[in-house]
């Protein structure tokens, strides 16, 4: 069996000394599970999004007359139900975060200069904030009587 955290050996103190094995590389300081959670999130949100997005497309475009019946009244009718409100809210957040994380990865992969990487990411995060804010705002404050 492998060691657990509690009895992990202290190789840096006492015992046979080993020449500092990580001296030459730039120190990596990220002691978080951020990348782990990012990776896991992509898998889990992906599975959920298959259901949410395909369900969404099916309802909007195929069932019961399809796209032709979509109008203000149709949207107003759906968003009067907390179920569809939650569906759309969850779909909005998962899809946006899933896409942002994917793009973040691509930027990390392909942006060669630190400046480019910084500005592309700044643009990405700003756009994500705007989309998430506006989308959430609309879902929660939608007024079916706005025209009258």
């Amino acid at each position: 069996m492998s060691a657990t955290i509690e009895n992990a050996p202290k190789i840096h103190g006492g015992g046979p000394s080993i020449e500092s094995p990580r001296s030459k590389r730039s120190p990596r300081s990220t002691k978080t599970n951020f990348e782990l959670y990012g990776w896991l999130f992509m898998r889990l949100s992906g599975i959920l999004l298959v259901v949410l997005v395909l369900g969404h497309l099916l309802i909007q475009l195929v069932l019961d007359g399809g796209v032709s019946r979509i109008g203000f009244a149709f949207v107003a009718g759906r968003w009067s139900s907390p179920f569809w409100q939650s569906w759309d809210l969850i779909m909005l957040w998962l899809a946006e975060l899933h896409g942002v994380n994917g793009l973040r990865t691509i930027i990390n992969d392909y942006a060669e200069r630190d400046q480019t990487r910084f500005w592309l990411k700044a643009l990405l995060y700003t756009s994500a904030l705007i989309v998430l804010f506006l989308g959430t705002l609309v879902i929660f404050t939608f007024d079916p009587n706005i025209g009258s």
Binding site: I5, P9, R28, F34
Partner: peptide, 22 residues
């Protein structure tokens, strides 16, 4: 390796930004 006890440390290193998640 069942004889080795440094797994946690190595996993910690590979959990970093430039580790296995890339």
């Amino acid at each position: 390796d069942s004889r080795d006890e440094g797994a946690e440390e190595r996993l910690e290193i590979l959990n970093e930004k430039e580790g296995v998640w890339r």
